[in-house]
Design a binder for these strands. Structure first.
Length: 1087
RNA sequence: GCUCGAGUGGUGGAAUUGGUAGACACGUUGGACUUAAAAUCCAAUGGACAUUAGUCCGUGCGGGUUCAAGUCCCGCCUCGAGUACCA
């Protein structure tokens, strides 16, 4: 009986489907194990042999765990919203749902042929309304949440509203927009409903905001940072520009630190962790404020003072006042301290100074730019009433300030009121006047630096050309140059800027900033090596400690002061933190890096010109796409404010549209929908014509991005058909998290970061029990293709066989690998028949030995290279079991390796050999006996059990295939037909080659599937050897082998070896200096 | 540039805490069976020298540690992946 793999595989695939063999139970006494593959997008091209690699590995692991007695969850589904189906729809008018459906059936067919043990009863599709109902639901949960930094987790928005009602927002420590204004409880209550919504939007975890986005005009959509490669779109390679749009965003930045910290909780590949760490981009340092010095008259500033504009005191008594002011800053009254705290923390969009000398006085608080003075009067000051009045008169009448006065009591008992009054004054248009004209008085530049310890090495500052201050500080003399430079950088595309990082460009603004400590003037430059989007868009340039600053300084002849002890900086900057010892830096002299950083931050805080700060590169994620084929938002707009549709009415189903393109007015494709308005009374989607903004409102026109549906699917698989909840608590508490997740490394910073974010959010809300969704993750390597080439003589229609080219000039052309046999010979008949190669029908062929030999090269598998091998053809020719074994046999799972179909005959003949092992009867009849197994039989079996078990646990699937081959070779040589050996062998192989294993299992007389048969138990007693063949080496080189009893002592071994003829022959009379004996391993004779 | 990973026969790749380098396959060569082919089976197969016995050289390169190094240490080279002026 021959091994008829086609019949066997079809039979068992049918059996598994009909019996739901792999259906996982949510109620089980067995221990759970969750094996997951990364969500595939069902593309129209179908699978090539590279795709199933990870699926085969995870399937082997899942099957192995079933043998080990686990209740295994091993689901599969489709991430079925996506661009290609939509692009196809735009081109052909075919509804993306139809294309998607077709592609899914093709995918399913291909997957089924490979014999995977998926639980198909749990299949999910992101584009299915019963699935995206829950995507919409999670979106609403995010909308209804804010991030409380004090509890360090997401909380319901109602707890925030409660705080607002009680005490306003000044004590709230939340992750929110940067420009929130401070309000009191009274304010909050006084706000209109719309104002309240606007405020809340600044705190919600998903929020609507005007953001600068990556707009791709060709695709008509916004792209996330990770969807852009080298400045062009990942899909299609279209140009991308920056554009401001109102978009939904996700406040992932709230989770930056936890996303970083919790990487320690998961067993993921280090490179993947590294790239997430890199992507989050935490840097620790300080934010330092530099005052901009006023321009001298000659610079066009118009001021007569050589001292900075914030030096508002009369110069004759400035010194005295300053000393007193500093004294007073150190010893504030309770009320002063409280108010200062409030003024600083509540972002009032205005900079206050305290105990500031003005004219001949010191005022408590002043906002110079709005010319507002705030005084807090304690009892002590009562006797001064007259004097105060006089001084107020002077400040108000002569200097043009507004003065607000509060009592200590007011400040201490009702700080909200006080702040409110100050805010009102600030917003009063009559106040101040500094905005209209260019005046550098009181301007400041904030910079972020990771090396505050090098602050005395600052010799210039550099602003991004886009920095808002550039226009204000540039002097008349420099204006022309600066404007020309800005225009030039704007013209350079993003791509040019990235490609060309070597060219140093920049311009001097003519303005100077003041060094916080030395008070020296520092020239302010602009340069495009400073990015507007990172940190504050400005740097303090320390050329001796930063190579970019160094290069810039060299290029523009800016001094490079050295502030490092014993370091030569004549050639390059010195950036080694560990070896740093600071010099020429006043109070930092002699300090190493860490101590210097601490000290300088302390000093900066004293000066109120800086503070320690942690900066992240991770930005909030834009969540809107101007696309049709995605999840619609459960959102309608009342008076421009977004409203969530109640969960009871979900899902909001994607509407039908005529065209899948943006509308003529530039709205997203959903703008074409005619039935896309929300009726709040009927609670249903109705015709747009009914929109009256009273009970019928417009719905959101954007859709969600690709990562929405894939960020929680692993949890939905636990209870995929639940109509009441995203999943039941019973289900999630049983399955908990993914034990093994296998997929490609291309998802390192996209899917895997967003999923971790959503998981943490759901964890905060008590919806999932684990803060990380996948314990162990493995990245499978890519399978590359082996392309074939034919060679055409330059300018002629002559094709030359590979080895006859010589030094002639030829043009290599891809030829379809299907036309080439394993010996690299081109099938000339089929080649000439193929319409693709019609041009060569009349071509002249230069053959070697009558054959045309093609060239070979390893490349990525792709249609355009004609090197795609499909799993279907392999299954047809060799069978699924051969395909599975061969994909594993190719090499380690994580490594990328080239596909070469020729090699598959090796594993295929192994399967045939194994089949013969069970069919040793007459004319190949099935033959298994109850004979006692021999010692050799048992040794082979247990050696195999041990190795396979170790290999699977270590995900070393390639080596276990070798082990099977060795076992079958040995057992065949031993002519073993013993049931006691062949039964466990079938179980060992079944995870890898399940079809043949099932067939043999049933022939062995088992009526049920092999899939839950217990894994054979390893017993070491069968491997105990009575003798050992020792390698005998001389000076480390193995010369001969010697069989010795295994229980000999060191001394006995040495004696036996020394007595041997060959040893004496090797030594040729010399006496060995030393004899090393490692019992059970090796003998080495030195000398 | 930075970070990470990897370099072993003609090819894919094995090799435990340092202990017989090249397991297992593919390919190639020779042989058996066959009218022939396919399939199957047997043998050889890192390189050089040698009739044999055997000797020497061999895990990207150069050093080192060790009785012993593919494996550990130092310095380089090449390739691949990620990232890109992140202050």
């Amino acid at each position: 009986m021959t091994y008829d793999f086609r019949k066997i595989e079809e039979k068992w695939q049918k059996f598994w489907a009909e019996n739901q063999t792999f259906k996982a139970e949510n109620n089980s006494q067995k221990e759970k194990f969750y094996v997951l593959d990364m969500f595939p997008y069902p593309s129209g091209a179908g699978l090539h042999v590279g795709h199933p690699l990870g699926y085969i590995a995870s399937d082997i692991y899942a099957r192995y765990k079933r043998h080990k007695g686990f209740n295994v969850l091993h689901p599969m589904g489709y991430d079925s919203f996506g661009l290609p189906a939509e692009q196809y729809a735009i081109q052909t008018g075919q509804h993306p749902a139809i294309t998607t459906e077709t592609n899914i059936s093709r995918y399913r067919e291909q997957l089924d042929k490979i014999g995977f043990s998926f639980d198909w009863s749990r299949e999910v599709r992101t584009s299915d309304p019963s699935y995206y109902k829950w995507t919409q639901w999670i979106f609403i949960q995010l909308f209804n949440s804010w991030y409380n930094k004090d509890s360090d987790k997401a909380e319901d928005i109602s707890s925030l509203i409660a705080i607002f009602e009680k005490e306003g927002n000044q004590s709230v420590n939340a992750v929110c927009d940067e420009d929130v204004t401070v309000f009191s409880a009274t304010d909050w209550k006084a706000f209109t409903a719309k104002e309240q919504q606007e405020v809340l939007l600044q705190y919600r975890l998903t929020y609507l905001a005007e953001t600068e986005v990556n707009w791709c005009p060709v695709l008509g959509t916004v792209l996330a940072n990770d969807e852009i490669v080298n400045g062009v779109s990942e899909r299609g390679g279209h140009p991308v520009v920056r554009k401001k749009m109102t978009q939904w965003s996700m406040r992932i930045s709230a989770y930056a630190q936890r996303l970083l910290d919790d990487l320690a909780l998961v067993d993921w590949p280090q490179p993947l962790k590294d790239s997430q760490t890199n992507w989050i981009g935490r840097s620790e340092g300080a934010e330092v404020t530099f005052r901009v010095l006023p321009q001298t008259p000659s610079q066009g500033g118009g001021s007569d003072s050589s001292s900075p504009k914030f030096h508002t005191a009369d110069s004759d008594i400035y010194g005295v006042l300053l000393e007193r002011a500093q004294e007073m800053r150190k010893n504030p009254t309770k009320a002063e301290a409280l108010l200062w705290e409030a003024l600083r923390n509540k972002n009032l969009n205005s900079k206050f100074r305290r105990q500031h000398p003005i004219s001949r006085y010191i005022v408590d608080f002043v906002c110079l730019e709005r010319e507002l003075i705030v005084e807090v009067d304690g009892e002590i000051h009562q006797y001064q009433l007259n004097k105060d009045a006089e001084r107020q008169l002077l400040l108000e009448q002569k200097k043009g300030y507004t003065v607000l006065r509060f009592t200590n009591d007011e400040v201490l008992n009702n700080i909200d009121e006080v702040i409110l009054k100050i805010e009102k004054s600030l917003s009063s248009p009559s106040l101040g006047g500094g905005w209209g004209e260019v005046n550098t008085e009181d301007m400041e530049i904030s910079v972020f630096t990771t090396r505050p310890d090098t602050i005395f090495g600052v010799s210039f500052m550099t602003l991004a050309p886009e920095h808002e201050l550039v226009g204000k500080i540039t002097t008349a003399e420099q204006r022309e140059e600066v404007e020309a430079y800005i225009a030039a950088t704007a013209k350079r595309s993003e791509r040019d800027r990235m490609a060309d990082v070597k060219t140093i460009t920049g311009a001097f603004t003519g303005a100077y900033a003041e060094h916080p400590f030395s008070k020296e003037p520092i020239p302010i430059w602009i340069g495009d090596y400073v990015l507007a989007g990172y940190g504050t868009g400005a740097v303090m340039s320390v050329p001796c400690g930063d190579q970019r600053d160094y290069d810039f300084a060299k290029h523009f002849n800016i001094p490079i002061p050295n502030i490092f002890e014993g370091v030569d900086i004549s050639e390059e900057a010195f950036a080694d933190k560990e070896k740093t010892v600071i010099a020429n830096s006043d109070f930092l002299n002699g300090l190493p890096y860490k101590k210097a950083v601490k000290r300088v931050i302390f000093e900066l805080e004293k000066l109120e010109q800086g503070t320690g700060k942690i900066n992240y590169r991770l930005r909030d994620a834009v969540f809107s796409r101007q696309r049709y084929w995605g999840e619609p938002f459960p959102v309608y707009y009342v008076d421009g404010m977004p409203q969530m549709i109640s969960v009871d009415h979900l899902p909001i189903i994607l509407p039908e549209v005529e065209k899948y393109l943006p509308t003529e007015t530039g709205e997203p494709p959903l703008g074409n929908a005619t039935v896309w308005a929300w009726d709040v009374n009927k609670s249903e989607v109705v015709n747009n014509q009914l929109i009256d903004h009273k009970t019928v409102f417009p719905l959101e026109l954007n859709t969600m991005p690709g990562w929405a549906g894939s960020s929680y699917y692993f949890n939905r698989y636990m209870d995929p058909n639940n109509k009441e909840e995203v999943f039941s608590q019973e289900a999630i508490n049983y399955w908990q998290d993914v034990d093994l997740y296998i997929g490609g490394s291309e998802h390192a910073t996209g899917h895997l970061l967003y999923s971790r974010f959503w998981q943490k959010f759901l964890f905060d809300k008590g919806i999932v029990p684990k803060p990380e969704f996948a314990k162990k993750l493995i990245n499978q390597g890519m399978i590359t293709g082996t392309s074939a080439f034919i060679y055409r003589l330059e300018g002629q229609n002559t094709l030359v066989s590979r080895n006859l080219i010589g030094d002639r000039s030829v043009q290599p052309l891809h030829v379809d690998v299907a036309l080439v046999n394993p010996s690299d010979e081109l099938d000339l008949v089929r080649f000439k028949e193929n319409p693709l190669y019609a041009d060569f029908r009349e071509a002249e062929f230069v053959l070697e030995d009558g054959k045309y030999i093609v060239g070979r090269e390893v490349e990525k598998m792709s249609k355009s290279k004609y090197n795609v091998v499909s799993p279907d053809s392999i299954c047809q020719e060799y069978g699924a079991d051969s395909l599975r074994l061969y994909e594993m046999f190719l090499g380690p799972l994580e490594q990328s390796k080239p596909w070469n179909t020729a090699g598959i005959t090796g594993v295929h003949s192994f399967l045939k050999k194994m089949w013969r092992l069970y069919h040793g009867g007459d004319e190949g009849a099935f033959l298994v006996t109850d004979a006692e197994p021999t010692a050799d039989n048992l040794k082979t079996l247990h050696k195999t059990i041990k190795k396979v078990e170790e290999d699977v646990e270590n995900f070393s699937f390639n080596t276990s295939v070798s082990t099977f081959m060795i076992a079958v070779n040995e057992l065949s040589a031993q002519k073993c037909s013993s049931r006691a050996i062949l039964e466990p062998l079938a179980i060992l192989v079944s995870a890898y080659a399940p079809h043949i294993a099932e067939e043999l299992w049933s022939k062995l007389g088992h009526p049920t599937s092999i899939s839950t048969a217990p894994f054979p138990k390893f017993d070491g007693k069968y491997l105990v050897e009575s003798s050992k063949e020792y390698p005998i080496s001389f000076n480390g080189k193995m010369r001969f082998k010697l069989e010795l009893p295994a229980d000999l002592s060191k001394e006995e071994i040495e004696a036996a070896v020394m007595a041997h003829d060959k040893t004496q022959e090797q030594l040729q009379g010399r006496t060995p200096k030393k004899v090393i004996v490692v019992p059970g391993k090796i003998v080495n004779i030195v000398g």
